[in-house]
Write a protein that binds this DNA or RNA. Structure first.
Length: 559
DNA sequence: GTAGGGTTAG
């Protein structure tokens, strides 16, 4: 026999303070089912007045909005709301807040509709309503609506509220209007840590990394965990991973001082991402051991970051080990592992893992297919690539993006199937980007297809006249086919157009946990002679292996 | 109440 014990039966019909009793009960509720039972009780109880009932319904709705994370509960809240005759400002704020913060994908405009209703019902927004509306506009990149909300900020007199100001800074920088965000920030008399963080993140997202760093230095003692994490993440995503790791270490040194800000899992995920892009395996291992010592919660994000780090640093065994030990794996974790296998030419294994992923019921996304298609490119699977591209559309209803076309062009181009590659480019539903043409140009270089290569390179030079890479490849194509006059012509064209590498190319290598950066102009820490001797050793090794072509490549590029 | 995180081809 099953005993069903419901919360509903626990609510006494008679209670000296029934209203307060139920309010407390709502507050301690953990799941929707219990809330549902309380909801029914509020409706049917004969001992509650109409006022008590509307008070408790408000409380219930507020609790559902703030306590629960699921979208199902949000639907429930919206449903309750529909039955409230005259919602209060408190109710509107709770519901706008829930709709603005809980839904990641901006599919509907519930918040703005609610706001319209609210204004229509004669209510005036307060300083809690406006930041959430601005958050919703930031999420949707709705510059038009955001500016309209800004007008309301002025109209209702909340220009001086620091929460409203911060939300405006965030909104303007998310919509790419950094100047307006900066004006607001400069005009603030009482900035708090969130103002600084919002402005720093705004600069980072809009590519002004150095301005962000200036602000970061200006902050001095006010930094919190979000400040540190934002800067570290922003630097990694902006391609400045080495500086990100420097700041990660600075953060740990500053932990000795008064204001202890210890790294959390966001910091660790970003630091791992920095190690991955640098190929800094020793530092990556150090971050991994730090993670284990620190007691930071080990979640899917951290697991994925570890897989990516070990994989990109070339330690596939370790990546697999971490991956296999992960208890929960979402599509990002599977995709990370598939991409790692693809990167190292383990095409067959990448597809085996894909099968395993499907078998456990995880649905691939667009990025998963980029990983699979790149596996085909790196392993020379032409037919499999075509099949993959088709099945992605047919079986998963994933519309190929420009990235997928770039992969396909790469696959076909590497196989020397130039006609098919060109045909595919001509039927692409979107404008082919530089990566698509770049993949084709790469294939021309690989196969010495001067005729097509010339055309593609000229097109790319038209598209990006200051990118030196396309001129170099064209020169290389001419040189390989003995057209030295044309090669000279391009060289002088480069000079005439003043094309040069804006940032000198550099490589980084990690030796004993220190990342060294070196470029053609000279090494910063490692003597160039030492590098040359290693290079010679490698070249000799390759010569012995009989791979004379590769040997030739290294020597000629060096000269 | 406002601010921060993992997977992508070249």
């Amino acid at each position: 026999m099953v005993f069903y014990f419901s919360l509903y039966t626990m609510i006494p019909c008679q209670h000296p303070h029934l209203k307060n009793y139920i309010a407390r009960l709502i507050h301690s509720c953990k799941n929707i089912r219990q809330l549902n039972q309380i909801h029914s009780h509020i409706i049917v109880s004969p001992n509650l007045s109409a006022d008590d009932r509307s008070f408790l319904i408000s409380r219930l709705l507020f609790h559902i909005c703030t306590a629960s994370e699921s979208t199902a509960s949000l639907k429930y809240a919206n449903k309750i709301f529909d039955h409230i005759a005259k919602p209060s400002l408190y109710i509107y704020n709770a519901l706008i807040r829930a709709n603005a913060t809980k839904i990641k994908e901006p599919t509907s405009c519930v918040c703005l509709t609610l706001y319209k209703d609210m204004i229509g019902g004669g209510l005036v927004p307060d300083c809690v309503t406006l930041p959430f509306l601005l958050k919703e506009c930031s999420k949707r990149f709705d510059g038009y609506m955001g500016r309209a909300i800004h007008v309301h900020v002025v109209k209702f007199g909340y220009e001086g509220d620091v929460y409203v100001q911060n939300a405006l800074i965030h909104f303007y920088s998310e919509c790419g209007v950094l100047e307006d965000a900066g004006k607001l920030f400069d005009g603030m008399s009482n900035r708090d840590v969130v103002s600084w963080n919002s402005m720093i993140v705004g600069c980072l997202r809009n590519g002004k990394l150095d301005v962000a760093l200036e602000l970061f230095r200006e902050m001095k003692e006010r930094k919190n965990i979000i400040t540190w994490n934002s800067v570290i993440t922003g630097l990694v995503q902006g391609g400045r991973a080495k500086e990100a790791l420097d700041i990660f270490h600075e953060m740990q040194n500053s932990a000795d001082e008064k204001n202890v800000v210890r790294p959390d899992k966001v910091t660790v995920a970003s630091a791992l991402s920095a190690c991955a892009s640098l190929g800094a395996i020793d530092q990556g291992k150090w971050v991994h051991s730090f993670l284990e010592r620190s007691g930071i919660e080990y979640d899917m994000v951290i697991g994925t970051a570890l897989v990516d780090m070990y994989g990109k640093c070339g330690n596939i065994e370790r990546a697999l080990e971490v991956f296999n030990q992960m208890r929960c794996k979402d599509v990002l974790a599977w995709t990370a592992m598939i991409s790692v296998l693809a990167l190292h030419g383990y095409g067959k294994e990448a597809f085996e893992l894909f099968e395993e992923m499907k078998a456990v019921g995880v649905r691939p996304n667009a990025v998963t297919f980029v990983g699979l298609l790149s596996a085909c490119a790196h392993s020379g699977f032409v037919e499999k690539g075509r099949e993959c591209f088709d099945r992605m559309k047919r079986d998963y209803y994933i519309v190929p993006q420009v990235e997928h076309y770039a992969c396909m062009i790469d696959i076909l181009g590497r196989a020397g199937l130039f006609t098919e590659a060109e045909d595919l480019i001509s039927v692409m539903p979107m404008r082919p980007d530089v990566f698509v043409w770049g993949a084709l140009l790469g294939a021309c270089q690989l196969h010495g297809n001067v005729r097509l290569g010339e055309r593609v390179a000229k097109y790319l030079i038209d598209l990006e006249p200051h990118n030196h890479a396309f001129y170099i490849i064209l020169c290389d194509l001419y040189a390989k086919s003995g057209r030295f006059d044309d090669q000279k012509r391009i060289r002088s064209l480069m000079k005439g157009q003043n094309v040069r590498k804006t940032v000198p190319g550099s490589s980084m290598i990690e030796v004993d946990g220190v990342v060294h950066e070196f470029s053609v102009k000279g090494s910063f820490q490692i003597p160039i002679a030492a590098l040359e001797s290693v290079l010679l050793l490698l070249c000799n090794g390759m010569k012995i292996e009989g791979d004379t072509w590769l040997y030739h490549q290294v020597i000629t590029q060096d000269a």
